[in-house]
Design a protein around this nucleic acid. Structure first.
Ligand code: FES
Ligand code: FES
Lengths: 144, 144
DNA sequence: ATATAAAAAGACCTACATGTCTTTTTATAA
DNA sequence: TTATAAAAAGACATGTAGGTCTTTTTATAT
């Protein structure tokens, strides 16, 4: 459903948050190693997220990525929107130019509720809530 | 959620079925015009669907695309599987190598039900049921 | 038999997602 | 103030989805 770029973004931000809690500011080399993603491309993804102000960064010795206000939760929706674009949850599933409930495609009545459930899910979940699951050993950040 | 190729495939098959009911066998030129898709690429998509035995075709004068057994319903799942690949509904939403409910990623518990709802939806809906909605004027095949 | 109309096939092209390499900038430690 | 370690930036490379063009094959009408 989501592109690889978005997957890297989610995993990277979760790792950054987990390290921030421990008072650390990881760099892209460490991040990419821990989340099993391509190093340079992960740097690019994090740069874009920083430009979108979803994460902060400091250059130079001792620098790295971090959250300015770790208490301000970042929904997965914000990340998806930043990476995949604003239209992700409003496109017609049948490929028509617009999704229009008043003049629907034959998929709409069944598709829209699924799309809506996904939308609500990613608005409920946050980078922080994902990180907490991992810290409670209820989930894993990467897999061999 | 679905790629453009899958969208063309769904719209094309629905149109083919609607014409079959009227005793006609449309060609790719007519099909692409009616579903508003690129002509040659639609031909390619239909060729692939024919190879996957989701639709039949006859060459030569008076030829075109048609369903051998129009009463045998084709689920949207079959089309998605043929175009997007077998893994489409089993991939981990967080990008881990496998989806594993026993060793889940932090998205799994919330993501899997949405993915499952989508899966059930596309297994319930068929090319025939979509065409029927259009014939009953409850839905539209294309949009200006 | 021949002409015609159609799909099949395959070479080719384009745009975009994904990924890598090198250079530049900048903050900090020594 | 110099060396160093880090992100930022941008050029470059690769892979894949999406799309076009031309030629070949084949079924049918004449
Ligand atoms: S009109 Fe197609 S999904 Fe809404
Ligand atoms: S393990 Fe990630 S979705 Fe199942």
């Amino acid at each position: 459903m989501l592109g690889k770029t978005t997957e890297y973004a989610l995993r990277a931000l979760v790792y950054v948050y987990m390290q921030n809690i421990k008072g650390k500011r990881p760099g892209y080399k460490e991040i990419s190693k821990e989340i099993d993603s391509p190093e340079q491309f992960t740097a690019k993804v994090l740069q874009n997220l920083a430009r979108a102000e979803l994460v902060s960064s400091v250059k130079g010795r001792g620098g790295g990525f971090f959250f300015d206000e770790p208490t301000n939760p970042i929904t997965l929706f914000k990340v998806i929107e930043a990476v995949e674009g604003k239209e992700y949850f409003s496109k017609c599933g049948f490929g028509l130019k617009r999704c229009d409930a008043n003049n629907p495609c034959p998929l709409h009545d069944n598709y829209a509720p699924v799309r809506e459930a996904f939308y609500e899910m990613v608005n409920k979940m946050t980078i922080q809530s994902l990180a907490n699951k991992i810290n409670k050993h209820e989930a894993t950040l990467s897999r061999i």
